[in-house]
Simulated assay, not measured.
Amino acid sequence: MSALLVALGATVGAPIRFLVDLALKRRFGEGFPWGTLLVNAVGSLILGTLMALPLSPEAMALLGAGLCGALTTYSTFAYETVQLSRTGARGRALLYVLASLALGVGAAWTGLTVTALLFG
């Protein structure tokens, strides 16, 4: 049952990631991976929030592993960082790594802390 819930959550998360990335590439161009940065930060915020809630294992499978797992993407982050470096944009690559770490961890911590304060 858990695998089915993960798959169901992923059917929502993956298209959202794709559409956000597409929209931001159209809006800002392909010089910086804004889409991946945004979905990874938002997914981290959601996951931090979920961690503070008394959810069942089934809800965590659906929303945590499924939705957030498909919404966020470490492999794309790694690929885009390498591509920026390979094309000579090492400064942007470093900025991307630092921003991704700060926003991802900060968003997860914020989601966890705020939710715990509100509902704990």
Results as ranks from 00 to 15, higher is better:
34 W>H: 15
43 G>C: 09
55 L>Q: 07
70 A>L: 09
67 L>W: 00
49 T>E: 06
43 G>D: 03
42 V>L: 13
61 A>L: 09
60 M>V: 14
53 L>R: 00
41 A>S: 14
34 W>T: 01
35 G>S: 10
55 L>N: 06
61 A>N: 05
39 V>N: 02
39 V>A: 08
49 T>Q: 05
62 L>W: 11
57 P>Q: 14
36 T>W: 13
52 A>V: 02
43 G>W: 02
68 C>T: 06
36 T>Q: 08
44 S>I: 10
59 A>N: 01
68 C>V: 10
67 L>T: 01
65 A>N: 07
55 L>F: 13
42 V>W: 00
58 E>R: 07
48 G>Y: 00
38 L>P: 00
71 L>G: 11
72 T>H: 11
72 T>S: 14
68 C>K: 13
41 A>G: 08
71 L>W: 12
42 V>F: 03
58 E>D: 15
34 W>A: 13
63 L>E: 07
50 L>Y: 03
57 P>H: 14
44 S>C: 15
72 T>Q: 07
51 M>L: 15
35 G>F: 11
50 L>H: 01
69 G>Q: 10
61 A>I: 03
49 T>H: 01
69 G>V: 05
35 G>P: 13
59 A>E: 09
57 P>N: 15
66 G>Y: 01
71 L>I: 12
64 G>I: 02
57 P>W: 08
54 P>G: 07
45 L>R: 06
37 L>C: 13
71 L>C: 12
71 L>R: 10
66 G>T: 07
55 L>V: 06
66 G>V: 04
49 T>F: 02
50 L>N: 01
62 L>S: 05
64 G>C: 11
63 L>P: 06
67 L>R: 00
54 P>R: 04
35 G>K: 12
33 P>K: 08
36 T>Y: 12
46 I>P: 03
60 M>K: 14
57 P>F: 07
63 L>F: 14
48 G>H: 05
45 L>I: 04
33 P>N: 06
46 I>V: 15
44 S>D: 08
61 A>C: 10
61 A>H: 05
58 E>W: 02
34 W>L: 10
52 A>N: 03
56 S>Y: 09
36 T>V: 14
44 S>W: 03
